[in-house]
Design a protein around this nucleic acid. Structure first.
Length: 274
DNA sequence: CCCCTATCCTGAGGGC
DNA sequence: TGCCCTCAGGATAGGG
């Protein structure tokens, strides 16, 4: 499932692939994928426009257009933004296609349709509540101990629940929360307000470390994540705990424990994480 | 405020 | 070979 590293990989690749390209023709097979405005008018809104920069906020992609409006894309669980030859065969779950002036096509594909697309100014996207208020970017300079403490200090909820909440820290999901907690030596099931200063400091250190490594590996293709070129990332080979419940810890050999916390499968090492 | 559950959705994998 | 069941989960809404 695409989290910050996967979305960042897509954003970087898109920046190189579509910046400066003009949109020639747009087709929308599934207008319900477009949450705002009515998906049926997306073609007339986009046609003729040129892509400029590509931004990422949390797990949201924001493709800037020369009108100043943006095409917002959230990949959900199984969404893909692909750049391919306009003549390439169209996959079963391709919902939106935009042909470009270089002979390529930008395609949005999503088997489970948890993904969403929206179009408008940043203000309009916010007002329409398709782009929610998001917390601090964990790979930015703003990600400080003060910021993280504000997310963790007072609440009684679990670390897992607090870090899944995109209003606190933006871009973390099930994979990288479990990975960061393992690196920090903190059980995801711990109550936030009971964490020590040392443990909060360990999380501050671990979160960007885990994310930076994953970006360097072009993301984790544990489900069916693919980059813009339909290629897999390699970070799944480096995951320490995610998807490894019942298997031995790479560090100490203890059997990794699998639980459900905040409605999500959670895996941790009962020996390394206390 | 916070938790849990249901909802959306398809494909993979297990059992028979 | 195929059918049914369960599970996976990001975001959001509604109930407790």
């Amino acid at each position: 499932m695409p989290e910050l590293p996967e979305v960042e990989t897509v954003a970087r690749d898109l920046r190189a692939a579509v910046s400066g390209r003009r949109i020639e023709h747009v087709s929308v097979d599934r207008p319900d994928i477009v949450r705002f405005p009515d998906g049926r008018i997306l073609p007339e809104l986009l046609t003729g426009q040129r892509f400029e920069n590509v931004d990422r906020r949390g797990k949201y992609l924001l493709l800037e257009l020369d009108s100043g409006d943006e095409l917002m894309v959230h990949l959900g669980m199984t969404g893909h933004l692909l750049v391919c030859d306009a003549d390439a065969p169209v996959a079963k779950h391709t919902h939106i296609r935009a042909s470009l002036d270089d002979g390529n096509e930008l395609r949005f594909d999503d088997a489970r349709r948890f993904g969403r697309v929206a179009y408008g100014s940043r203000e309009a996207l916010t007002a329409a509540r398709v782009l929610p208020k998001l917390g601090v970017e964990p790979l930015s300079d703003a990600f400080s101990q003060e910021q993280l403490d504000a997310v963790l200090r007072k609440t009684t909820r679990t670390v897992k629940a607090a870090l899944l909440d995109q209003k606190g820290v933006a871009g973390l999901g099930n994979i990288y929360i479990d990975e960061a907690c393992f690196l920090a030596g903190v059980r995801p099931t711990r109550r936030c307000h009971r964490l020590t200063r040392r443990e909060r400091a360990a999380l501050l250190d671990a979160i960007p470390r885990v994310l930076t490594a994953a970006v360097a590996n072009r993301g984790s293709s544990v489900d069916d994540y693919r980059d813009v070129w339909n290629a897999r990332g390699s970070n799944q080979e480096r995951l320490q705990v995610y998807g490894r419940g019942g298997l031995p810890c790479f560090v100490c050999g203890t059997t990794l424990r699998r639980t459900t916390t905040a409605g999500r499968t959670t895996v941790y090492c009962p020996h390394c994480q206390r």
